[in-house]
Simulated assay, not measured.
Amino acid sequence: MTALNSPEMLNPPLSVSDPRHAEAVDFLHHEAELLDGLEERTWLTALVSRDIVYRVPVRETVERARGRGFHATTFHLDETYGSLDSRVTRGETKYAWAEDPPSRVRHFVTNIRTRDAADADPCLLDVRSNLLIYRTRQEQTTPQLLSGERHDILRREDGRWRLLRRVVYLDLTVIGTHNFSLFF
């Protein structure tokens, strides 16, 4: 698992005028629109690679000398295409009680940085973004907020970008949400 890298370990970001950066931004905005619109099946089939690695590592509060505090082998979510498909399929049934009626979710994607992949493969893009998820459920008056940084690898497959890898580094050590049935 790739840890949060310090800026000096990364390639410089692509210019915002680089067409690949614009494509990555468009990809992330389209993804947010699909997820906010409860179009999880379209998201999965149109934007996610069959080889997906999708993880949310557990975070703990540690002293600065011990690193960033993310576990390398313990995850809130450790998904493949098959497990993501199972989650989407379950949400399409009448047995998804934890999300029926569904939560209202809004993805705010900001500070998008795009780089060439570490191995310089032209079919891969390293995309980092900050994420804020605003979620309300039924008649709740207090929203749930989840923030963090996403480290994505996009791969060009059949002429279009697909999400190959996503690691979400949440800012929270304790997650105060009633379920994890949303997608980051």
Score class of each variant (00 low, 15 high):
Val168Ser: 00
Leu182Asn: 02
Ser147Asn: 04
Pro101Ala: 13
Phe108Thr: 12
Arg115Lys: 09
Ser17Lys: 08
Phe75Gln: 04
Gln140Ile: 04
Met1Leu: 11
Thr110Asn: 12
Gln140Arg: 15
Thr42His: 06
Val62His: 04
Ala120Thr: 14
Asp171Pro: 00
Glu8Val: 11
Arg68Cys: 02
Leu84His: 01
Ala72Glu: 14
Leu124Ala: 03
Ala32Thr: 07
Pro13Gln: 13
Val56Thr: 02
His71Phe: 15
Leu124Gly: 03
Leu124Trp: 05
Thr42Gly: 01
Ser49Met: 05
Asp85His: 06
Val105Gln: 04
Ser6Phe: 11
Ala46Leu: 08
Arg64Ala: 15
Ser103Cys: 05
Arg113Lys: 14
Pro57Gly: 03
Thr80Val: 01
Ala22Asn: 11
Thr142Ala: 12
Met1Pro: 02
Phe180Leu: 15
Ala32Val: 06
Glu60His: 06
Glu40His: 11
Val58Arg: 09
Thr173Gly: 00
Met1His: 09
Gly91His: 12
Ile112Ala: 01
Trp97Ser: 07
Met1Glu: 06
Arg135Thr: 12
Thr74Ala: 14
Ile112His: 01
Thr80Asp: 04
Ser129Ile: 06
Leu172Tyr: 00
Arg90Gln: 13
Val105Ser: 02
Thr73Ile: 09
Pro13Cys: 14
Glu39Asn: 14
Leu125Glu: 06
Ile153Ala: 04
Pro102Asp: 09
Phe183Tyr: 03
Arg115Glu: 08
His76Thr: 08
Arg87Met: 10
Arg165Ser: 13
Arg104Val: 11
Phe27Ile: 05
Asn111Ala: 15
Thr89His: 10
Glu31Lys: 05
Phe27Ser: 02
Val16Gly: 14
Leu84Thr: 02
Ile52Thr: 02
Glu33Asn: 12
Thr45Pro: 00
Tyr95Ala: 14
Arg90Asn: 07
Thr142Asp: 10
Arg50Ser: 09
Tyr81Arg: 08
Gln140Leu: 10
Asp116Trp: 08
Thr42Ile: 15
His107Ile: 09
His71Val: 00
Ala46Met: 10
Glu33His: 13
Arg155His: 02
Leu38Ile: 06
Thr80Ile: 01
Asn179Ile: 03
Leu172Ser: 14
Asn11Tyr: 15
Glu92Asp: 14
Leu145Glu: 06
Gly67Tyr: 07
Arg115Val: 12
Tyr54Glu: 05
Asn179His: 14
Asp51Arg: 13
Arg160Asn: 13
Ala3Met: 11
Asp26Val: 09
Arg104Trp: 07
Ala22Ile: 12
Pro122Trp: 05
Val167Met: 00
Glu139Met: 13
Thr136Gln: 07
Ala117Ile: 03
Trp43Leu: 08
Ser15Met: 10
Glu99Gln: 10
Gln138Tyr: 09
Val62Ser: 05
Asp158Lys: 11
Ala3Trp: 01
Ser103Arg: 02
Lys94Arg: 15
Ala117His: 14
Cys123Trp: 00
Val62Asn: 03
His30Ser: 14
Ala46Thr: 15
Leu77Phe: 05
Thr42Ser: 09
Glu40Ala: 10
His21Thr: 13
Gln140Asn: 14
